[in-house]
Simulated assay, not measured.
Amino acid sequence: MHIRTISKQAGRFVPVLFCLFILQCVSAQKPPLRLFLIGNSFSQNATQYLPELSREGGHELIIGRAELGGCSLQRHWEHAVAAEADPKDEKGKPYNGKSLKMLLSEGTWDVITLQQYSKISTDLSTYQPYAGKLYEYIHKLQPNARIVFHQTWAYRSDSEDFGQLTGGGEAKSEKEMWEKSRAAYRTVAAALHTTVIPTGDAFWQISADPKWAYRKDKQFDFKNPPQSTLPSQTHSLHVGYSLNKEKMNFDSHHAGPAGCYLGALVWYGFLFQESPVRLTFRPETVPADFAGQLRKTAWNTVKKELKASVH
C-alpha cells in the first residue's frame, strides 16, 4: 500500500519535473547577446550598469569595445584606414594595440553601435562621409550584425558650452543641443536605413520634467564656494560639481551615476525590447523614487523609438 501510494504520487510529479527540466534546458541554450561598441567615454557611461541590469533580467550579455576618449566618427574611420593601408602602423591600432578590424573579427557580433563625439554631434556636416564609410566597413566584416547609432545626450543646463552648429556658432542651451543632435543622428540613421538607441531623448525627458529636472542651486555661492562644500545637485544626470583635494571641479558633459543608470536602462529596453521597469537594481547613490522615474522614462522613450522604427 505504501509503495503504491508513493508511485502514484511520483507519477503526478513526473510531468511537472519534466517541464521544468525542458524550460531550464531551453534557457541554458539561449545564446548570449553579443554587443560591440564603437565610441568614447559616452558609450562607456551609457553601458556602465548594463551588465547588472542584463543579469537581473536573465539575459547573458557579452560586450566588446573600441572606445577612445573624445573620439569622433572621423577619427575612428581614419584609424581603420591606417590599419588597412599598413597592418603594422600603430595609428591603425589605437584600441590597446588592436585595430577595429581585429576587434570586430573576434567572433560574431549581434549588435554594433556607432556614435558621434558629443561636442560635434549637433553638426550634421561632421557625420558624413565617415558614418557611411564605417557602416559599410563594419557590414563587410560582420554582415549579419545589426548596426545602429547611439544617440548621445546634451550637456547639463548650467554648462558653460554646448555643441557646435552646422555652418558655425554653438548651441545656446541644453534644449537646443538636444534638438540639433537628435536631428543629426536621425538624419544619418535614416539615410543608412537603421535606427538609434535614444539615450539623448531619455535625458531630455528628465531635464524637461518640472518635478524631476536638475535645477542649479541658487543658494550656493559659486564665486566664493565654502571649503570642502558642494552645491545641491538633486536629480542631476551629469557629473556636475565634485571635490578633488578640496578643489571644486565641474563636469557638465559626462553622465553621473543617475545618468549612467538611465543610459543603461535605455540600452536594456532597446536591446532586449523588454521593459526595465520591473528591475530592482540601482546604484546606491540614486534615490529609490528617482530610480523609479528613470526606469519609467527609459521604457517610455524606447517604446516610442521602437514604434517609430516599425513605420
Rank of each mutant, 00 (worst) to 15 (best):
E52N: 11
C71I: 08
I63S: 08
N45E: 03
L100F: 04
N40G: 08
V111M: 05
T113C: 04
L35D: 00
L68V: 11
N40R: 02
S125E: 09
D86Q: 13
R55F: 10
R55T: 13
L100R: 01
L68S: 11
H76Y: 10
R75Q: 15
L35K: 03
L37S: 01
Y117G: 02
R65E: 12
S54E: 00
D123R: 00
S99C: 01
S125M: 11
Q74Y: 15
H76S: 09
S118I: 00
G107Q: 12
T108S: 09
H79F: 14
G58E: 12
F36V: 00
K88Q: 15
P31D: 03
Y127R: 01
L33M: 09
F42W: 10
V111Q: 05
D89M: 06
K91Y: 13
L68W: 12
T47Q: 02
S99D: 03
I112Q: 01
D123C: 10
T126W: 02
S72M: 03
Q48A: 15
W109K: 09
Q128Y: 08
E67C: 13
Q44N: 14
Y127P: 05
G58T: 13
L61E: 02
I63R: 09
E84S: 07
E78P: 00
L37P: 00
L50C: 05
K88P: 04
E90M: 10
S125K: 03
W77N: 04
R75K: 15
I120V: 13
P31S: 07
L103F: 06
V111Y: 14
G64M: 12
